[in-house]
Design a protein around this nucleic acid. Structure first.
Lengths: 403, 403
DNA sequence: GAATTTAATTAAATCAATGAATTAAATATA
DNA sequence: TATATTTAATTCATTGATTTAATTAAATTC
């Protein structure tokens, strides 16, 4: 247990709270912070001075609240600390540099080659991180966050060694990166990262519950409740791709029948469209089309492709309805490559299913967002995982040595 | 927000922590508490003295840890404070008296009559609470917890008025009971209460995630994560009865298709068995059998009944697998009347489905329990809801006035 | 029976937040 | 323009829960 609180703990908790409030509020005065936190103005003065000193926050401009003296605008200081975010996918990886407000400063995409071994892939990821860190001059890189595909079994006793993920289970990412770059490293499941990423992106408070659907080659989800990820016993909560939506449905390679991801995923879409093409159905596409081409065809109005895409999105809608019934989230965000190819149609299909199948009171209290061509939520989330990790016990501020 | 912490907050948090540790540990020395909490022995001495003074904990016996001086055994003082728990069901209600360790001291069951109006029903519940409180002499009743059927929409702004539940949506239970009995009152959805009840019953720590399935006239669930209920946006998380398990399945009155509770619930069991009886299938049962009779027939080995029960339990198994994939709980508890009629068979069926359909790593880390003839988890949970409510901010210890 | 180990208490010290007074800077009013 | 009012922010002595260090108490070991 070990969670009794003493003065050190109080200090840490209040400082982290102020940072979180500033992240949500964007910019506000000391007086605002006092009101939001319930702490006294004198305390806020102290905390602000300390956080300013270690360059976590800064003063910038003024806040006019009507009458009376203007407040000094305080916001996160995005000019000094940096985190590196990496999203590893099965066919490519993204790497980027972020400030501590979670803003992407730069990012790049790197394809994996067919024959590349896990070690070679990990080597290229490390080189890319190296090159990002080398470019940084005055600023200070304090952490690296990595989002990897699931299932990702967290070893609760020793985070250092005990993880595995598909294709390269033997590389202790966290330890190796920590040793090489000498900064804190946080590894997270990509859908969980996406959930934290969209939670920051949506800029909502702790009291809101958010579900992120990662609709890619498989279907995963991440849940943010009370500002924290719901991880489950082994850290594999969110494997919604293996939720049965047809009890006597198609046999999945996981051993279950009628799994959601047998009816809805970019893999299934590509396979089904190509199968129909082989059978000679009319389409502007040729056999052997990949997701990009299918996306273009769908956006161009190709009937076969649109029909298949709509079918998948409707199944996704059933998954969304199930999660709404099970968890009653305030916010649902759907992202990743299946969403990216045609977000407008996905939104229509999902909303239709939700309208048809969901209790109206619950439905009307749920915001549903599709992430199209904007930022990759799992990449952004990788950075957020690192930032949240730094703020979390027990290492808060240990990385920000005295100036 | 308003969650900055000062010295008062620290004191409250640490005292609540000690109570929670004692609840889990059952009985331990001051030194043990210091080790578990991370607080110093001197602090524990102070806290223990205060909590002893307000009769929340007591010294009882000694603890021999090998060599060295023996510790004094500390445990929750179950002799003074009392809470009343009430579970309201559609056809009956249970009411009981509990100590602050969540032990049931007495309870009774009261059937609702067919024609009884909501007000009459609520009147009888109040009389029963009155009679329980009257029996209590030296002890002190500090709170009432009520578990009611869902869906239960929590009004987050004003818990006083804004709830509704099926059949009697207009009675402001919380306010009326508070006014009449002058104690704290907490209302919770019955599956959520059941979840908290089994969480205490299982006596596991905060780090464990527990899911409780209330398998009765409908199927509901409650989720305990980090020692707290997952409530969702409107407090209706856990409506797993309306999770689709057959995308193109039976139309449910909720508007959705293929809802779990169309394939599995005591209502469905009774209807399906009686329908088969009408059609002349062989059975020891007669037409118009109720759940009691069906349960007896099943336990007596009546083939028709057993087959129907197994069918329902298998669907429940699909629901369990889905929840395991979605939330990855450490512990699954299945209770209520459908479980009660034949727990051994339910366990077999559910475990078979889980074995057949679930990822083995996750499966082996999940404990699955069926609650048979033991305590009603939602009744116990009603009491726990009250106790947890008292311990939660902001009212912790305000009810325990100075002795 | 003395040494060792563990438990629990006591009393002074620590230090994060607080309260009260003060300074600062805006608008409103005359 | 001068003055009152309002809100923002700071200063510094005070508060009080936890801690530290020393002490007492009671068990086992040899």
């Amino acid at each position: 247990m070990k969670n009794g609180i003493n003065q050190d703990g109080v200090q840490k908790i209040n400082r982290v709270l102020i940072i979180r409030l500033l992240r949500e509020a964007g910019s506000c005065s000391r007086a605002d912070l006092a009101r939001m936190s319930g702490l006294r103005p004198a305390t806020i003065t102290n905390i602000v001075n300390e956080l300013k000193h270690i360059r976590l926050i800064r003063e910038e401009g003024a806040i006019n609240a009507g009458r009376g003296r203007n407040g000094v605008a305080i916001s996160l200081d995005t000019s000094y600390y940096r985190v590196v975010g990496v999203r590893v996918s099965r066919k490519y990886f993204l790497a980027g540099l972020f400030d501590i407000a979670g803003n992407e400063l730069e990012s790049s995409r790197h394809e994996f080659a067919e024959g590349e071994t896990p070690k070679e892939r990990f080597g290229r990821i490390q080189e890319q991180i190296e090159s990002i860190i080398e470019q940084v001059k005055e600023e200070k890189v304090v952490a690296i966050g990595i989002a990897i595909p699931g299932p990702f079994f967290r070893n609760r006793d020793s985070r250092e060694e005990g993880f595995e993920f598909q294709d390269w289970p033997e590389i202790p990412i966290e330890r190796l990166l920590k040793e090489r770059f000498g900064v804190y490293v946080f590894v997270e499941h990509d859908a969980n990262a996406g959930a934290l990423g969209s939670y920051w992106q949506m800029n909502v408070g702790q009291e809101k519950m958010l579900v992120y659907f990662s609709a890619g080659q498989g279907i995963g989800a991440g849940f943010v409740n009370g500002g924290k990820l719901i991880l489950g016993a082994l850290g594999v909560a969110g494997e919604i791709g293996h939720m049965t939506v047809e009890t006597n449905g198609i046999l999945c390679k996981c051993g279950n029948y009628g799994c959601l991801e047998m009816y809805c995923s970019s893999t299934v879409l590509v396979n089904r469209v190509n199968k129909k093409l082989t059978k000679g159905n009319y389409s502007i596409l040729k056999e052997g089309s990949d997701l990009d081409k299918i996306g273009k065809a769908a956006r161009a109005g190709d009937k076969l492709t649109v029909a298949e895409y709509e079918r998948e999105c409707s199944y996704l809608g059933v998954g969304v309805v199930n999660i709404m019934n099970i968890l009653n989230p305030d916010i649902v965000v759907i992202g990743d490559e299946l969403a990216r190819i045609f977000p407008e149609t996905m939104k229509e299909c999902v909303l239709k299913v939700v309208r048809d199948r969901m209790n109206p009171i619950v439905r009307e209290h749920t915001d549903i967002h599709i992430v199209g061509d904007e930022e990759d939520m799992s990449l952004k989330g990788a950075a957020i995982v690192a930032i949240e990790g730094l703020l979390d016990e027990p290492i808060a501020f240990e990385w920000a040595e005295e100036q």
